[in-house]
């Protein structure tokens, strides 16, 4: 799948933002006034920024308002509704903490749960697609949720729990790569099942339907850059969890090491998300004899 910057930024940043909102919602840290303002500002900037980035992917954004209508069947619609409801609810909670010196605890808990639900709906946009076997597994949702909780803990400054979560996240990410590598074969799709010609022999593409890449190929048959995927996996795998943990533990805690830890985590997150798209193979590639 084409690793479009808009979807990489969208899933990465909004995941982080809702992860941070989750921690703020359950009261870790319990901050008020200006420091609460700073925290909520970061969370909203990430969540809203991510959502806005996703609209760059739309061909016809003027109809985006209709995206809130199909919650009964569409995960993308549910994602839109869940994020707006969460952001509105948490805004009330934030006003309490920032201006009134009050923590509306129940509201916070509901908001935290909704934040996680929002991340889950994002994950299901991808995990529901049978056409992309690498994504079509439960681990995909586990991965998105772990990213949000771990990254959120790091941003929320919950160092002791963040360290554990970042290590768990690293394990989850490697498990996803392991399982993902086998998914296409497990799903059993081949050029023979795609064309139905398998009983006549081995099938190969003789002539493509068009001479230069079309929308389908640009969007779904992305094969560039896979050769670097091993290296990128190592960079991502080390940078998203191990380096931040070392920084947080080895150095005496100070704003610079904390900022560096966040920077490494985000770098790892972007690299892993790039791979999430670039390595995903869509079954339509079978018709083009390339994945």
């Amino acid at each position: 799948m084409h690793p479009a910057p808009s979807v990489i930024i969208f899933t990465s940043l909004s995941g982080l933002g809702f992860g941070l909102l989750f921690w703020l919602g359950i009261g870790y840290p319990e901050v008020y006034g200006m420091s609460a303002f700073g925290m909520f500002f970061v969370a909203y900037a990430l969540a809203v920024g991510g959502l806005l980035a996703s609209t760059a992917h739309l061909g016809n954004p003027k109809n985006a308002i209709h995206a809130f209508s199909q919650w009964r069947t569409s995960w993308l619609s549910r994602e839109g509704i869940a994020s707006v409801v969460t952001l509105l609810l948490m805004a009330v909670y934030a006003i309490g903490m920032v201006f009134l010196g009050q923590r509306f605890q129940i509201l916070g808990w509901i908001g935290a749960a909704l934040s996680m639900f929002t991340v889950f709906t994002t994950s299901m946009i991808y995990a529901q697609l049978k056409t992309v076997p690498r994504w079509n597994m439960r681990l995909t949702s586990v991965m998105f949720l772990t990213y949000a909780v771990a990254g959120g803990a790091l941003l929320a400054g919950q160092i002791s729990i963040a360290v554990v979560l970042l290590l768990v996240l690293t394990l989850v990410q490697f498990a996803v790569w392991q399982a993902g590598d086998k998914r296409f074969r497990e799903a059993g799709h081949t050029i023979e099942t795609a064309t139905g010609l398998g009983n006549l022999g081995k099938v190969r593409l003789l002539e493509p339907p068009h001479t230069s890449p079309n929308y389908l190929m640009k969007e779904m048959v992305f094969t560039v850059g896979r050769k670097h995927s091993r290296k990128l996996r190592m960079i991502a795998g080390v940078s998203l969890g191990l380096l931040p943990v070392i920084l947080l533990y080895a150095l005496p805690f100070n704003p610079i090491s904390a900022a560096l830890a966040v920077a490494f985590h985000v770098l790892g997150l972007f690299a892993a998300r790039w791979l999430f798209f670039a390595e995903a193979e869509h079954v339509v590639g079978l018709y083009y004899d390339k994945r």
Binding site: L197, L200, G201, R204, L205, L206, E207, P209
Partner: peptide, 9 residues
């Protein structure tokens, strides 16, 4: 769209 395949046994 028309794809053209070669099938060989």
């Amino acid at each position: 769209r028309i794809h053209t395949y070669e099938v060989k046994q």
